[in-house]
């Protein structure tokens, strides 16, 4: 508990996470509103059509999560952290928990903000949260941001350098997966890409490119969480072995 409290102080006592959070919410709502205001045919209708901006906010929280680790490494502060808490597994897990929860909170604010704006911009559509599916499509954004932050932290621990880790996280989440899915003959493998699974969980049905991994959105989410959790486990194991 004391490690979690310490990590919370770390995250909230510098300005950049606050800026990231605010920017993440605003950017998501803003991008979402563009497609909603245009009332264009995005291939989605109903509640999912309010959440098309989620990718941008996710990129922002992933940058925030990566920085939470790599700035500690780049200024050497990770050693101060390990001096205060020599058991590296617990302290890295505490950091992950705090940062991922913050990312999830940003996701919830962004998602319900977008949804509320959708009620205003698209009054003709049925955007009511009728049941679990609709709640998942909005509230699930928080869960996706949370797990995406875990993914980013794991990459941050492994790479340690800010520029490299941010570049890898962003190109993978925003570009590489879509590009891989477009390679002819790669479709069967493309559905195993974690961020495609996250997209499927949120927007339902089949992703725009490639066959779905599963028809069950929660199975897709579970797969995304398992990949990120596995990556974090590897990262912590590596961090334990390494000289700080």
């Amino acid at each position: 508990m004391s490690l979690i409290a310490a990590e919370r102080i770390k995250l909230t006592s510098i300005r950049s996470p606050w800026w990231c959070a605010a920017f993440g919410v605003l950017a998501t709502v803003g991008v979402g509103s563009i497609s909603m205001a245009g009332n264009e045919d995005t291939g989605f209708s109903g509640v999912p059509s309010t959440q098309l901006g989620y990718g941008l906010g996710m990129a922002v929280v992933m940058v925030m999560a990566t920085l939470a680790v790599t700035t500690e490494y780049s200024v050497g502060m990770i050693r101060t952290t390990f001096l205060a808490a020599p058991a590296r597994g617990p302290v890295l897990l505490a950091k992950t928990l705090v940062v991922a929860l913050a990312a999830g909170l940003v996701g919830l604010l962004a998602a319900f903000g977008s949804w509320a704006l959708g009620l205003v911009l698209m009054p003709g559509r049925d955007l009511a949260l009728h049941g679990p599916a609709e709640w998942r499509q909005v509230g699930g954004v928080g869960l996706v941001y949370l797990v995406a932050a875990v993914f980013a932290i794991a990459v941050g621990i492994l790479i340690r350098h800010t520029a490299g880790a941010v570049a890898l996280v962003l190109t993978w989440a925003l570009m590489a997966e879509s590009l891989l899915a477009m390679i002819p003959g790669f479709e069967p493998a493309a559905r195993w890409l974690p961020f495609q699974a996250a997209k499927q969980f949120l927007l339902g049905g089949r992703p725009a490119d490639g066959a779905p991994l599963t028809e069950q959105p929660w199975v897709a989410m579970g797969y995304f969480a398992a990949v990120s959790g596995g990556l974090l486990a590897i990262a912590i194991a590596v961090a334990k072995r390494r000289d700080a």
Binding site: S2, L3, A6, I9, K10, S13, V75, G76, T80, V91
Partner: peptide
């Protein structure tokens, strides 16, 4: 130099104390 340059001295010591 093993401190975060954008964190205040007090906040740095606060998280250390809490941990």
């Amino acid at each position: 130099k093993w401190v975060h340059p954008n964190r205040s001295a007090r906040a740095h010591l606060r998280w250390l104390a809490r941990s």
